[in-house]
């Protein structure tokens, strides 16, 4: 859902750039608490993976495609503040080197995918994790739902921006319906990929997964045994 230059008018683009800059500033402060000696290398790895996965458009029918946004995945693996920074770096590199997403639209894209996508995913993940049984296997459905919801949430944020400063006069009801429908389908793909990757890392190194930390603290004595991991 990389927004090109020209979709939104200049004042709206300036507005989203201010929002994005404020969000990134907060993320720069918050991510320090998420990054320790063990998890810091993971941040670079997740950024590489998100960039690579965003190149992989999968078909969703009627000649349309979608790709992983990665906000849910990054937030669950390394924490939401660091995830905002990861999406920002990926979007910067895409816009400046690959002309993917506009340059005046950079603030819009960072707000949509790096703020709305990441933080909605994180809120949904924490909520689902809280109502599921306190074991590591609960992280897989929580990751799926977080990924699924994050994509239509970002799409709705785009509709809101378009309502404020879209360049063409478009029926907003039609825009909302079409954006929600397509991005819910794409969200299913987002949820599946997010759940698969999170489950893979949880199966091998749950201690490195940010979203697994509350579960690991409770079972810190058993987590290094095979029973503790498979429970």
């Amino acid at each position: 859902m990389h927004v090109p230059d020209g979709f939104l008018d200049a004042p709206t683009s300036v507005g989203t750039a201010v929002v994005a800059a404020a969000g990134v500033a907060i993320a720069l402060r918050g991510s320090r608490r998420e990054l320790d000696d063990r998890t810091a290398p993971l941040a670079g790895l997740v950024a590489m993976f998100v960039f690579a996965a965003q190149m992989l458009n999968f078909p969703v029918g009627l000649g349309t495609s979608g790709h992983l946004l990665g906000g849910a995945l990054a937030a669950i693996l390394v924490g939401p503040y660091t995830a905002t920074l990861i999406l920002t770096v990926v979007l910067l590199v895409q816009a400046l080197l690959f002309a993917d997403g506009g340059i005046t639209a950079l603030g819009t894209n960072i707000t949509l995918m790096g703020l709305v996508g990441v933080w909605v995913a994180w809120a949904v993940f924490v909520g689902v994790r809280a109502i599921l049984p306190k074991r590591l296997s609960s992280l897989t459905p929580a990751s799926f739902v977080a990924g699924l919801v994050s994509v239509p949430a970002a799409a709705l944020a785009f509709v809101a921006f378009y309502a404020i400063g879209g360049q063409a006069p478009i029926d907003l009801t039609a825009l909302t319906g079409a954006m929600l429908a397509w991005h819910t389908v794409i969200g299913v793909g987002e949820g599946l990929i997010t759940a698969l990757v999170v489950a893979s890392v949880v199966a091998t190194r749950p201690d490195l997964v940010h979203g697994a930390q509350p579960l690991l603290k409770q079972r810190s004595l058993t987590v290094r045994s095979p029973e503790g991991i498979s429970a």
């Binding site: 969703v60 349309t64 495609s65």
Partner: peptide, 13 residues
């Protein structure tokens, strides 16, 4: 091997 179809936003646009 990725799909070259327009993405959700492009299609809607």
């Amino acid at each position: 091997f990725a799909s070259s179809h327009p993405d959700g936003l492009e299609y809607v646009a």
